[in-house]
Amino acid sequence: MRYSYYPGCTLKTKAKVFEDTTLQTARALGLEFAEVEEWQCCGALYPLNTEEVFPLLSPVRSLAQARAAGCTKLVTLCAGCYNVFRRTNRTMRSDAEVRGKINGYLEEDYRGQVDVVHYLEILKNDVGFAELAEKVSRRLEGRKIAPYYGCLLLKPRNEMDFDDVENPTIFEDFLRALGANVVEYPYRTECCGSYLSMANEEVAATAVGRILTSAFKNGAEALVVACPLCKYNLEEYQKGFREAAGSPAAGIPVLYFTELLAEALDVREQDGQ
């Protein structure tokens, strides 16, 4: 199946490994990811006020392009992009006023015809976790991995419709398909501090410390994420946290889910191509 693929800024720079492993694994699974041409930054945040409409121009432009290319689904990886695209698409479907403004400006007639999906959703719904499990050649047997959802995939509850906000299972099901041992811990959906790490580092550091402590107490040997900003925060403050609290939680690797997928499908040798 052919998907329109929106990588977003971070996957082309700081999170190159996220994109590499995504494309490697998609290829291995027979999924065709066609990158949106001349895409622009999605804006990173969905506007939380009634006044700003134009930040939606960029995501709608990509969505309209996906539609023009004949794709019914646009796939994103970064949880930030996913959040913005999913909510923008919802707005384009339900809010006639905003739709009129955006389409007028872009000279388009986009009404939300394309579905915005996350790669995890493709793995779950289009590939199927049972089928995925059969394709795994190097099962992650005995690896104790704690999924970290963060916020952007799941919330707002009534807009994202990604998984149960309080008790999501998609990451766990994914990890089980790869043969890993899933670590359950209560902090898997607690915010890592997000952009507070740019301006209020001590707040983000404390939030991260709680997540790591909780994951470690429950036996995690690695964390798996779908968001470059979560990964940055969880890694950046491990050190400070270790120094401050003397906690053995420091030093937990934080991996993109696609890294584990690439490993399980045994396609990682191609790194650096």
Binding site: A15, C41, L45, Y195, M198, A199, L229, Y232
Partner: peptide, 21 residues
């Protein structure tokens, strides 16, 4: 912004922070 943050932070984080702040 500390140089360390500018150097290491993902674009997503920087864009978010400036949109907010």
């Amino acid at each position: 912004l500390p140089a360390r943050v500018l150097e290491n932070a993902p674009q997503q984080g920087l864009v978010s922070a400036f949109r907010k702040y």
